[in-house]
């Protein structure tokens, strides 16, 4: 019964957390020549999660170490298509990244809010008042 209390929000929260790191990385490298901005293909990763597959890294060889805290796999990390590439090869566009960062922030807090509501519901059921 308690295996999946929070539904998709538990996985989504981890993924939004990873995405904050990726987007912060883009912001940090806004002035680095040749840096290519990246983002997580959210729909693909979450669809994979929803169908029961594990969220973290793919293990393709027996010798591979399973890293759960290693962040999103590179298959989920896509390079961003810039609206207008700059001459030094950097594809970070500050307004785009800032908008994505703000959006991700709101989504993270929304997922957190749903989880908090679920906890409040459970507490209500347990306490009965």
């Amino acid at each position: 019964m308690f295996n999946n209390i929070f539904g998709i929000h538990e996985k989504a929260l981890l993924l939004y957390g990873d995405r904050v790191g990726v987007l912060a990385n883009n912001l940090a490298n806004a002035d680095t020549p040749g840096f290519k901005a990246r983002d997580i293909d959210f729909r693909a990763v979450l669809a994979q999660t929803d169908s029961g597959a594990a969220l973290p890294l793919a293990v393709t060889e027996p010798g591979h170490i399973v890293l759960n805290a290693g962040g999103p796999s590179s298959a989920a990390l896509k390079y961003r298509n810039p609206y207008q590439a700059s001459l030094d090869g950097n594809t970070v566009e500050m307004p785009v990244e800032q908008a994505a960062f703000a959006e991700n922030n709101v989504r993270y807090q929304a997922s957190l809010g749903f989880i908090n509501d679920d906890i409040a519901d459970l507490r209500l059921a347990i306490m009965g008042q």
Partner: peptide
């Protein structure tokens, strides 16, 4: 760009990197 090898995934590519 300063790649973070410690947090690397199976492709050896870190998802986060500083500058």
């Amino acid at each position: 760009t300063m790649m973070d090898r410690a947090g690397a995934n199976t492709d050896g590519e870190g998802s986060t990197a500083g500058v």
